[in-house]
Design a protein around this nucleic acid. Sequence first.
DNA 1: TGACAATAGACAACATGGTTGTCTGTTTAC
DNA 2: GTAAACAGACAACCATGTTGTCTATTGTCA
Lengths: 156, 156
Amino acid sequence: MSRSGADLALLLLGSYRSMVNAATSELASRGYKDFKPIHEFALRAIVAGADSASDLGRRTSVSKQAAAKTIAVLVERGFVVSAPDPNDARRKRLQVTGAGLEVMSQGEAILENLREKWKKQIGSTELASLEARLTALVGDAAIRIDAPGWVAQDSG
Amino acid sequence: MSRSGADLALLLLGSYRSMVNAATSELASRGYKDFKPIHEFALRAIVAGADSASDLGRRTSVSKQAAAKTIAVLVERGFVVSAPDPNDARRKRLQVTGAGLEVMSQGEAILENLREKWKKQIGSTELASLEARLTALVGDAAIRIDAPGWVAQDSG
DNA sequence: TGACAATAGACAACATGGTTGTCTGTTTAC
DNA sequence: GTAAACAGACAACCATGTTGTCTATTGTCA
């Protein structure tokens, strides 16, 4: 059964979705309702140094307005605080809160758990080589997580 | 460098995007402007037997209204024709046109080409086993291609 | 130093693609 | 023959992105 290129693409998408769906539904069951991948990735970017809306937008290849909307949600839910930058009155500095770090770590743990499960199925070296191959395929293309629609879907 | 579960998810997403971006931009350069994955998958579903809007909606796990909107686009571009069903006056039967088959085959060829390139890189048996593993990971979950946002994005 | 360009963020308008709800007409099932 | 189910159309709405415009602030440089 030689698969086609289209099937391969679908397979990659399906694998991603399968992981993300598991993670979002598990997070939801732990009380983090409507926590979407896009929130996770925004938090990661902020932790990684994106400390303003414009900055976050640049890093995630999204308009600053879109970034600002995401930030508004995260602030409203207490995952991020936004305070005026003392050094630049135009800016508001972003910081991930303890709650934000907590949800990130739980999300990460869930994904890690899925990966471990998979590792047990196919073996550690197999998984490593698969990851290496995917890395080669992706190359240096930045992975952009702008994601309305299904990526952001709760898939309840 | 032991990767994390989140990285794996991102890798899967990135791989998919990388294939799809290549395909859409190549199709665009061949004159198929704004032909998005969702169109491809709708055509595939119609060829596979979804011959009405409601049917297409069911098969792609999308509301019939959403399916109808997609069909409207495909009809407008000449990839699909919609004619009253002689056996059921409620229905309009869908049929993929020659142009529709053509764009499908070109899209498929582009993806196939990418897959071949990859096969040369990592070897045929390696690719097969990777696909088998992804298949196992995805399991029986239906892959739903509802996809506003980046999935549907043209990515210049 | 003073003027002009660049930047941050807010606000509004709009695009895309999906959803639900309602309505009409047709078919199917008792 | 009547009631339920179904197909499709239409409208309203939601989510998430975009561009455009505006104000305030900062940085640059003549």
